[in-house]
Structure formats: structure tokens, C-alpha cells
């Protein structure tokens, strides 16, 4: 499966199901109640922020020209091919935090206790098994959806959210 998580912010109800599901997916046990007592505690890669009174889920955009990748001095961050996710190889990370500073979306984060950094991996393990990312699966309103790059615009046009560009 290839794609990106698309956020339709008008549909966010701030239920935080995506946040919970993300933390569980990135835990050792991958089970809600067991993961709550794990050390270190699993961290969600998606966060809810408030913009102009409205809730907005923010997660990694997996940019084509990713600022975090450019900023990383050890090559721990890399883009996994065209249309692929931006991934962090923990064994190469020295915890310098350059990527945290570089990311324009504020979605690369650092554990407060350990120096380790963490970010969205687009649930590559799930994608390999043809399952959508955990946040998308958990979203009850369709605010988050998993769509193939390049098809998002066509989808938006189909839903009437944006006008079709002239000439296709």
C-alpha cells in the first residue's frame, strides 16, 4: 500500500482516538491496556492542537523535500524513495534535535527523559500487511483518510471540496 494520511480538518471531533491508537501501535504490546503500563511509555506520533478554536490533528506530512532529512547530520532520517515515508533509523540517531528545529510542522518530537527522537513512520509495518495506518483506522468520522499521492486532488474534486482545475 502506498499513500499519505489526508486530514479533513472540518471533520475532527477531537475525540483523540487517533492519538490513542498511534501510541498503542508504537508500543511493545500493541494492546491498549497493557501498553499503558509499559516503560518507557509509548508515545503518540500524532497530536491534537487547537487552531482558531478548532481541533487539528497534526502528523508527519512525509514531505518530498523534507527539511528534517536535510538537517539530519548522521543520516538517521531518510526518505524511503519517491512517494515513500520519511523514516528514522534509531541506531543512527544521536539525539541532536536538529530535525526538531527544522520541521515546519513540529511533528518530530523528543522523549523528555531519553534523548531519543520519534516521529510518524506511516505505520509501514501495517502497510506491508495491507492495513491502513492506525490513526486512519481509528478515526470515526473520516477526518483522517489514507489516499494514494496524486489522487488526493481528484478525490477532493469528486467530493466538491475544491473546484476542478481548468483543463483537468
Amino acid at each position: 500500500m502506498k499513500g499519505r494520511v489526508f486530514v479533513n480538518i472540518e471533520r475532527c471531533m477531537a475525540c483523540k482516538r487517533c492519538v490513542l491508537a498511534c501510541a498503542v501501535e508504537h508500543s511493545q504490546s500493541k494492546e491498549l491496556f497493557a501498553s499503558m503500563t509499559e516503560v518507557p511509555a509509548p508515545r503518540p506520533r500524532v497530536q491534537l492542537t487547537q487552531v482558531g478554536g478548532a481541533p487539528v490533528p497534526t502528523e508527519c506530512r512525509h514531505c518530498d523535500a523534507a527539511a528534517c532529512v536535510a538537517a539530519c547530520p548522521t543520516g538517521a532520517l531518510s526518505k524511503d524513495g519517491q512517494d515513500g515515508p520519511v523514516l528514522l533509523r534509531a541506531e543512527r540517531c544521536v539525539g541532536c534535535g536538529s530535525c526538531v528545529v527544522a520541521c515546519p510542522y513540529g511533528v518530530v518530537r523528543q522523549h523528555t527523559s531519553a534523548k531519543r527522537l520519534y516521529k510518524c513512520d506511516l505505520c509501514i509495518e501495517r502497510l506491508a500487511r495491507d492495513r491502513e495506518p492506525a490513526c486512519v483506522e481509528a478515526c470515526p468520522t473520516g477526518c483522517l483518510s489514507f489516499r494514494a499521492p496524486g489522487k488526493i486532488r481528484t478525490w477532493l474534486e469528486a467530493t466538491g471540496a475544491v473546484q476542478a482545475s481548468p483543463g483537468g
Binding site: 471531533m13 475525540c15 483523540k16 492542537t49 487547537q50 478548532a54 481541533p55 470515526p140
Partner: peptide, 23 residues
């Protein structure tokens, strides 16, 4: 932000088949 299902009264936690939320 606080959960819109709870705010709108459309989250049901009455039985353990739930919690159920309506879109």
C-alpha cells in the same frame, strides 16, 4: 481540544458493548 462526541452528547458509555459514538 475536548472531545466533540462528549460535548455533543453522542457518546454512549452505558453498556460494555460500547463506548459507541455517532458520526
Amino acid at each position: 481540544p475536548q472531545c466533540g462526541f462528549g460535548l455533543g452528547g453522542i457518546c454512549c458509555r452505558i453498556c460494555s458493548m460500547g463506548p459507541c459514538q455517532i458520526n
